[in-house]
Design a protein around this nucleic acid. Structure first.
Lengths: 219, 219, 219, 219
DNA sequence: CATGAATGAGTGTTCATTCAT
DNA sequence: AATGAATGAACACTCATTCAT
């Protein structure tokens, strides 16, 4: 299943267009934005950390906001990658044997993605409420497509009887909350804890599938 | 169970110490901070919205950061309220007949709290990563106490056989993720949706207890 | 005829609304703008010359351009003053016995005005080509009204036979060119020359009335 | 009389030394300087409009000010051309039969010159007050020589009785004001008006010779 | 020759904070 | 207590100029 993750390729192909100075600037900006927040970050500090003159930043990025969007935009696209349908030969493409496999793949994969793009994701989450452009882009280009895809998968497994017949939005919310809850704990709240990822993922999947009561659902 | 919620009392007793101008300032600051973010908020705008002179803000709050902390601090305390043990006469105080009742009470109660303190919570979440003082205060005074209390409750119901014998931290994470996931969806992501809160809370509790597979846990 | 010149009153009444710092700022701005030109003038230099902090300028004038317009606007109004009709009791108001008297009054008066507002006029002339707002304001509020008034006067004296029957626009252009030509020479090009104003004004009026040939017009 | 106008030759001979890129740069600089003013013009915009790299400008012109002077300098020289004495065989050279002919030739000729060099003249007038080098060059090389020549002509016609016996500087000022007044109106203030140049020139000359009163000079 | 990336001093402007009234 | 005028450091951004390629 690895072959479907094209984010690295996208990233690399994009990086090819960047000069070393641009890369320094982006790295420094990610660092400073994630550490201080966009509004409190000074372009002078970014320049200093990147080892370039302040004017150089504005050669490549017309404004500070441009710099922000240049960091977040591509990452948002790459967030989307694993949810892009490979709809070849007209068949519905749900390449998972069961829901657990889907969850496991998703968690492992997005955990890795989040690990690699941790600071950018932090910036993204912090700034979405204040940047209407970002919010809109996120809602239209990312969220809706991811949801659409996941709805499809959930309904596929509902039909197969692996997922209970309750409202799909609620099932989604519950599933996603559990996954994101794990990722946040793992990376943000307790990053220094000595995690056994495989076991934790199994636990998370177990909770999502069977809850915490240990009894069959009464419905 | 209402008698345990002392947050309003705390709030009122605190408010009694405040002059009308202070209240205006706090209200305006909450408005502006939550709308623009702390760093991008101008004290002049807060003053204008509060209907006071710029200098007046600094009479009550030494710095802008002081103003921020004065908003968030008390709210953090009130977040804690329902988790405070009323450990009178030495008995362990777990005033819930079963885990579901606890969850239902918790969700209803914190949903109401979040609704009432929505903007402040937004500020809190936004600023915690950038204000070490806040982070520390939150970790030491709030999070640890809440967790301690919830651990107690979870283990109580584990002992009663209502909750399965898996690692408590994982159970906590899972439970809390599901609850917070609901709250975020309800208030932040889709606030305008026409929610049937009672049904959604039932669904959420059902998921937490039994997951989404509809089958008994295989463990 | 002195009573008609209300420009000083206008100026004074306006000045009354200004704080000492504002006056310093305006004076310094006039100095620096006229010396270096608007675009090449630094607000920091204006602040320094005015003896205020740079921020103080922007307390009173939102932008540098605002400062420019605040200087030029009132002066443009005062340029207009002597041409404002005092059209009381419905009579046409041409309070001059003959054209020469009109010219003499005009030259003396506007020479004095230009002397007093020399630097501002320099700024005005320099910046009109580059500030559409100024150009428009000047054309609509000043130039058209002055011309309208002067046309009226010229045609009045045409009817009386004191001015020849040639196209009024050409007469105006010729008259105004001669007056302005004198003012520019007097104040701008050769300010240090030892001028006998009364004699020069007489000569200028003589030229306007009879040209340089010493013979009667052949028409 | 055409043979005396050497400006085109000067221009062409100078142009011969210029590479195509230099010509592009000069044209672009004239455009941008006249539109925005020297101080507000960006060399980057000039480079872009000229279709060359920013660095190329500085290969030919050491500084931005150099570029300005390179534009204005030659034009100033060409302004001088018609006033240069062709003092061959020691005779005083006043090749005009009467003063009116001189005026007519002057106006037609300088109108054409101004038309052709309109933008440069605009730059020249705008920048002379701020560029001491220009001011000095203009006063010493141009103004004094033109005046010297015109004084000569005026006194020639004074001696012939065609011009009245009043102070030559005043006669000059009056004459030049009237000519320049016409040129400014014609080209700058009302360029879009439908002018009948021949008639307007006749009127202007008539005013200069006989004024506007229609009566013989009383002197 | 010509380029254009890189510079860094300088720009207009903002804003938290102070303090005389 | 309350004001708001005044501050000046910091900010995002510009631009003439340099220089390695």
């Amino acid at each position: 299943m690895e072959e479907q993750w094209i984010e690295e390729l996208l990233a690399i192909s994009e990086d090819e267009k960047l000069t070393p100075k641009q890369i320094s600037i982006l790295q420094a900006a990610i660092e400073v934005f994630s550490e201080k927040g966009y509004a409190a970050a000074a372009t002078s500090e970014i320049a200093q950390m990147a080892g370039v003159a302040e004017g150089t930043i504005f050669r490549y990025y017309k404004t500070k906001k441009d710099l922000l969007l240049s960091i977040i935009g591509p990452t948002m696209s790459r967030m989307l990658a694993p949810f892009v349908l490979r709809n070849f030969n007209g068949l519905l493409d749900v390449p998972y044997d069961n829901f657990e496999e889907f969850l496991r793949t998703l968690i492992i994969n997005r955990l890795e993605f989040a690990r690699r793009n941790f600071k950018i994701l932090k910036i993204l989450i912090q700034e979405i409420p204040f940047q209407p452009k970002l919010k809109e882009q996120f809602a239209e280009n990312i969220l809706s497509k991811v949801l659409e895809r996941v709805v499809e998968i959930v309904e596929h497994f509902k039909a197969k009887g692996e997922v209970i017949e309750l409202p799909t939005p609620a099932i989604l919310r519950f599933t996603i909350s559990s996954v994101i809850g794990y990722l946040l704990n793992r990376l943000l709240l307790q990053p220094e804890k000595d995690w056994n990822d495989e076991e934790e993922i199994n636990l998370t999947i177990h909770f999502i599938m069977h809850g915490i009561s240990g009894a069959a659902a009464p419905i």
